[in-house]
Simulated assay, not measured.
Amino acid sequence: MRIFVLLLSLIFSPVLFGESTGWSTYISEYGWATVSDTHQGERSLSEAIALVPDDVWLKHFRTFPSGEDVKMQKELHNFLVSKYPELHNEALASAGNMHNPKVVFLRAAFQEALMSTSLVTRINASLKSRCERITSASFEKFTIRKNGNQPTYNAMVWLSSEKCTQQGDQD
C-alpha cells in the first residue's frame, strides 16, 4: 500500500508536471506531451520543458493570452497594427466577440501574429536541442476586449510543433 501511495504522489507531483513553474505538462501514453500555461507562479518554460523526457515529443503548447501578459499583448497589437491596419481597425470598431464578422476576418492575421511573438521564439530556443520546433498556431474563441484605448486579445492558443527530419531542419 505504501508503494502505491508513493507512486500516486509521484505521478501527481506538481514539480514533476511543471505546476510549480507556471506550466503544467500532460504526457500521453502515445509518446507526445502538451505543456499548458497555468498563469500561476513563475513562468519558467525551460523548466517545464526539461521535465519532459527526450524520447517524448513536445507536440503542443497551450496558452491563454490575457491582459496580465503585457508583453504578449503588445507584440500581438504591434504586429496587427503594422501588418493589417485596416482589418485591425475594423475589428476594433466593431463588437469584439468571436462571431463578429470583423473579428472573424482578423483570424488569419492573428495566427500570424501569434507565430511572431517572443513566446514562440523562447519555445523554439528551448526545443532546438530536442530537434523540435513550433510550426503552427491555432486557437479557439478569439475575442478582442476594449479597455479604453488598449485592446486585449483573448483566445485559447495552441502552438504545435514538428520533429526535425534531420539536423539541418533546425535552421
Rank of each mutant, 00 (worst) to 15 (best):
V52H: 04
I27M: 07
W32H: 13
I11F: 10
N147H: 09
H77V: 03
V5R: 14
T34N: 05
L76E: 07
Q166L: 07
W158F: 11
P101Y: 00
R62A: 07
F110Q: 01
L16A: 12
L87T: 01
E86I: 03
T152G: 14
N89Q: 12
W158K: 03
S116W: 06
F79G: 02
I49T: 06
G22I: 08
A33F: 09
T135Q: 11
Q170D: 03
I27D: 09
I27R: 04
P65T: 07
H88S: 01
D169G: 08
G22H: 07
E140V: 10
R145S: 15
L159S: 04
W57S: 15
A33H: 05
K59A: 15
T63V: 11
A33G: 00
A50Q: 15
T117L: 13
E68G: 13
D171E: 06
A91C: 13
E86W: 00
L58K: 11
Y30V: 06
W32M: 13
L119G: 03
H39V: 14
S161R: 02
H99K: 15
H39C: 12
D69K: 05
E68T: 11
A113W: 08
L92Q: 14
S136F: 00
G96A: 05
S136L: 01
S82R: 02
A93F: 14
C164G: 08
F12C: 12
E29H: 11
R145V: 10
D169R: 02
S160P: 02
L92M: 15
Q167H: 00
R130Y: 13
V15Q: 00
H88A: 00
P151A: 01
A137Q: 08
F61I: 11
Q166V: 00
W23F: 15
T38C: 09
E68Y: 01
D37N: 12
F12R: 14
I144R: 05
V70G: 10
Q170H: 00
K141S: 09
S13A: 07
V5W: 10
L119W: 15
T165R: 08
W57C: 00
M115L: 10
F4C: 08
G168H: 07
L106K: 14
T165L: 02
